[in-house]
């Protein structure tokens, strides 16, 4: 899922400093699961902003709503009537949600409450880790199911580099060296010979470097 985290509340308050009434929109998708922008977080943020503004003698009126998914324009349409009389919309979705809202409500000031961080999972409750760099050309079959693109700090395809020591990456003793993990797993699978093959340069045009991407499935398109 997409992992996001709330921005510092001061920054969010700053974005809506000149507004009297705002709509805070949570999302029931990924950000609910990663506890950044679900119903609860939306209400907490609304209360915190209200308190903050009352302390400044400049009360803020808030309306809250949680969309089923902000990454689907059809779910955004469901909030049309809530939007009318607010000065701004604060989205607690990933960047996709913020953009769809901004697209639909041209004349509204739309701001992000979250920093969209990465694609990952949660190993234990409260800890999320990055697992995929969305490279558009998955190589996990060549690396024992461990992603070298995002879990190696240098995205090395023929690792490990000379900074790998005691299982950790050169950037931090808290970061596992992906290539140590790949080595261990390939060894356990009896496939170390695979690691002797020189992996060719990656085609980054399938990643963000090729410009904005689109995925199309003609067979499921309507009309």
């Amino acid at each position: 899922m997409i992992i996001a985290q709330q921005k510092p509340i001061k920054d969010i308050a700053e974005m809506i400093a000149d507004c009297k009434k705002v709509l805070l929109v949570g999302c029931a998708g990924c950000v609910t699961v990663c506890l950044a922008g679900g119903e609860k977080e939306t209400e907490i943020l609304a209360a915190a902003l209200r308190i903050m503004r009352r302390l400044q003698d400049n009360p803020l009126e808030t309306v809250t709503y949680v969309a089923t998914r902000q990454c689907d324009p059809e779910y955004i349409a469901t909030m049309d009537n809530l939007v009318k009389d607010v000065d701004a919309i604060i989205s607690l979705a990933c960047g996709v949600g913020v953009q769809y809202i901004a697209e639909r409500y041209h004349d509204k000031w739309v701001v992000p409450a979250l920093d969209t961080k990465f694609i990952g999972g949660s190993k234990v409750h409260g800890v999320w880790e990055e697992k995929c760099g969305l490279c558009g050309d998955c190589v996990l079959h060549r690396t024992g199911g461990i992603c070298p693109i995002i879990r190696c700090s240098k995205s090395i395809l023929n690792g490990p580099c000379g900074g790998s020591q005691y299982g950790k990456c050169e950037i931090s003793k808290d970061v596992d060296c992906a290539w140590q993990l790949i080595y261990d797993r390939m060894k356990a699978l009896g496939r170390l010979d695979k690691l002797m093959e020189i992996q060719p340069p990656k085609d980054w045009s399938k990643s963000r470097d090729g410009g904005p991407r689109k995925a199309i499935r003609e067979d499921v398109m309507i009309g």
Binding site: K40, E43, I44, A47, A48, R50, I51, R54
Partner: peptide, 11 residues
């Protein structure tokens, strides 16, 4: 106890 209840009390 929920963050919301606590904030509500202050509000």
């Amino acid at each position: 106890i929920d963050h919301r209840v606590l904030l509500q009390a202050f509000e």
